[in-house]
Deep mutational scan, measured.
Amino acid sequence: TETREFDNEEEARKEAERLRRKGQDVQIRKKGNRWELRRT
């Protein structure tokens, strides 16, 4: 599992969408005042 953190939700969602188009399974969750993007 690979995780990346983003400062805002929009960036996290854009990156998640990009990875999903490549066929990756991605989850986003709020972590304090940041957003965590998890690739499984």
Rank of each mutant, 00 (worst) to 15 (best):
K31Y: 02
I28S: 01
A16F: 11
N33H: 04
R20V: 06
E2L: 13
N8C: 08
D25K: 12
Q24A: 10
E15I: 05
K22E: 14
R29V: 15
E17H: 08
E10V: 08
R39G: 15
W35I: 03
R29M: 12
E5W: 15
N33G: 09
G32D: 08
R39S: 15
E15N: 03
E11L: 06
L19F: 04
W35A: 02
T40Q: 10
L19H: 04
F6Q: 01
R34E: 06
T1I: 13
E9T: 01
K30D: 00
R34L: 06
K30L: 03
T1A: 13
L37V: 15
G23D: 04
K14A: 14
W35M: 02
E9M: 07
R34Y: 10
I28H: 01
N8E: 05
T40S: 11
E9D: 02
E5Q: 09
L19T: 02
R21A: 14
E36Q: 04
R18G: 05
K22F: 12
R13I: 13
A16N: 01
T1K: 10
Q27V: 14
A12G: 02
E17M: 08
A12L: 03
R4F: 14
K30T: 04
K30C: 07
G23S: 02
K31D: 04
G32S: 01
E15K: 02
E11K: 04
K30Q: 07
F6W: 04
N33Q: 04
K31T: 09
V26M: 05
L37N: 06
R20Y: 05
R29W: 06
T3N: 10
R34Q: 09
K30S: 05
L19G: 02
E17S: 08
R34H: 14
R13H: 10
F6M: 02
R21K: 12
E2G: 11
T1R: 11
R39D: 15
E11M: 06
R13N: 12
T3W: 15
T40H: 09
Q24P: 01
E2F: 14
R38Q: 14
D25T: 12
F6A: 01
E15S: 03
R39E: 15
L37I: 13
I28Y: 02
E9Y: 15
R13F: 12
R18P: 00
R4Y: 14
K30P: 04
R34T: 03
R21G: 12
E11Q: 08
T40I: 14
E2K: 10
R13D: 05
E2Q: 11
E2R: 11
E17P: 01
T1N: 12
E5F: 15
R13G: 04
R21I: 08
K30I: 03
F6K: 01
L19W: 07
R34V: 06
D25H: 14
R20G: 05
I28G: 01
E17Q: 08
E36T: 01
K22Q: 14
R20F: 06
R13W: 11
K22T: 12
T3L: 13
K30H: 03
G23W: 02
G32H: 01
E15A: 08
K31E: 06
E36K: 00
K14Y: 10
R13E: 11
Q27L: 09
R29P: 02
V26E: 00
T3K: 09
L37T: 11
R18L: 10
T3C: 15
R18A: 09
V26S: 05
G32N: 07
N33R: 02
E11H: 04
W35V: 02
K14D: 09
N33A: 04
W35F: 04
R38Y: 15
T40N: 10
L37C: 09
R13P: 00
E15F: 07
R29F: 11
R38K: 12
R18N: 09
T1V: 12
L19S: 04
K22R: 11
K31A: 09
T40P: 07
A16W: 09
E10F: 11
T1E: 12
E5R: 07
R39F: 15
Q27R: 07
K31Q: 07
N8K: 05
Q24F: 15
E5I: 14
A16R: 04
K22S: 13
K22W: 08
R38T: 15
G23R: 01
K31R: 10
N8S: 14
Q24V: 15
E17I: 08
R20I: 08
A16S: 04
T3H: 09
I28A: 03
G32E: 06
R29I: 14
E5Y: 15
R13T: 10
V26I: 09
E10H: 10
R29G: 05
G32T: 00
R20W: 08
E10Y: 10
K14N: 10
R4T: 11
L19I: 05
E15W: 08
K22G: 11
L37M: 04
R4I: 14
E36L: 05
E15M: 08
Q27T: 13
R38A: 14
V26F: 08
E2S: 11
E11R: 03
G32W: 00
L19V: 04
L37E: 12
Q24I: 15
L19D: 02
R29H: 12
N8W: 03
D25R: 11
E15H: 07
Q27S: 11
E36W: 03
V26A: 04
W35Y: 03
E9V: 10
R4W: 15
W35T: 02
E10Q: 10
K30N: 05
K30W: 02
E5H: 10
K31G: 02
R4M: 14
A12N: 00
R39L: 15
K31L: 09
D25E: 12
E36S: 00
K14I: 11
E15V: 07
D25S: 12
E17T: 07
R4Q: 13
T3Y: 13
Q24N: 09
R21C: 14
Q24H: 14
Q27I: 14
R20D: 02
R4V: 13
D25F: 12
T3P: 11
E10I: 09
R21Y: 05
V26K: 01
D25Y: 13
R38G: 13
E9S: 03
R20H: 07
G23K: 02
T1F: 14
D25W: 10
R21F: 06
I28E: 00
E36D: 00
Q24D: 10
Q27E: 14
F6L: 01
R20S: 07
K14W: 09
E36I: 08
E9K: 06
D25Q: 13
D7H: 06
E11P: 02
A12P: 00
T40M: 13
L37A: 04
G23A: 02
R18V: 08
R39P: 15
F6N: 00
E17W: 04
R29S: 12
E11T: 06
R13V: 12
A12F: 01
D7G: 05
K31S: 09
R13Q: 12
K22N: 13
E10T: 09
N8A: 03
N33W: 01
E17K: 08
R13M: 13
T3Q: 08
W35N: 05
A12K: 00
L19R: 04
T3I: 14
E11I: 03
I28M: 05
R18K: 10
T1H: 12
E17L: 07
R34I: 10
E9N: 02
E9I: 13
N8F: 06
A12E: 00
L37R: 03
L37Q: 06
T1L: 12
K14T: 10
R34W: 08
R29C: 14
N8P: 00
K22M: 15
F6I: 01
G32R: 00
K22D: 13
T3G: 09
E36V: 07
F6T: 01
R21M: 12
K31V: 14
R34P: 00
K14P: 00
G23T: 01
V26T: 05
E11N: 07
R39I: 15
Q27D: 09
E10R: 07
R38N: 12
R18S: 08
D25A: 11
I28R: 01
W35Q: 03
F6D: 01
E15D: 03
W35R: 02
E15G: 03
D7C: 13
K14L: 11
E9G: 02
E10P: 05
K14G: 07
R34G: 09
A12D: 00
E10D: 11
G23N: 03
K30F: 04
R4P: 05
R21P: 01
D25L: 13
T3V: 13
K14Q: 12
A12Q: 00
A16M: 12
A16H: 04
Q24Y: 15
